[in-house]
């Protein structure tokens, strides 16, 4: 599976797709998108790159095993759900929002961090499964 076109394209596609995945993540609260889809698109970016350039090269973008993203994402989602209980603003999973819009990101709230956790976890899960299966095959 050596295709010079795919290889060259993958190099450009990686940053573009990652940017697109972040875009999906951030717009999720108002328009179609969200952490789950964003995470999937980010995984596609890495897998596509690995597909074109070989597994070894695909994995080298990760200084650590992608599986480590799973606990990080899980923890982030959990903490963002826990935050209102710690600050005493409400029950578990109550949404807290920063009152003013932030440039680029828009409204900033616990829901966004929750979604970010989902995003990271999905990347971790997908890449772990795919890389492991491909290695085993």
């Amino acid at each position: 599976m050596k295709s010079i076109i795919l290889k060259a394209a993958a190099g450009f596609l990686l940053p573009l797709l990652l940017l697109f995945s972040l875009f999906l993540l951030l717009r999720g609260h108002y328009l179609p998108g969200g952490g789950f889809v964003g995470g999937l698109v980010a995984s596609i970016a890495f897998v596509l790159h690995a597909f074109a350039g070989g597994m070894k090269k695909g994995q080298k973008y990760f200084p650590f095993h992608p599986g480590f993203l799973m606990p990080v994402g899980l923890l982030l989602a959990f903490l963002s759900a826990l935050l209102p209980m710690v600050t005493g603003d409400g029950a578990f999973m109550t949404g807290l929002w920063y009152p003013h819009p932030v440039p680029v990101i828009g409204m900033l709230g616990t829901a966004l961090f929750f979604d970010l956790g989902v995003y990271l976890l999905v990347v971790g899960v997908t890449l772990t499964i795919i890389f492991t299966i491909v290695e085993a095959a």
Binding site: G28, H29, Y30, L31, G34, A111
Partner: peptide, 10 residues
């Protein structure tokens, strides 16, 4: 504070 109902549910 979200307009995408699907995502807000999630």
């Amino acid at each position: 504070k979200g307009k995408n109902v699907v995502n807000v549910i999630l």
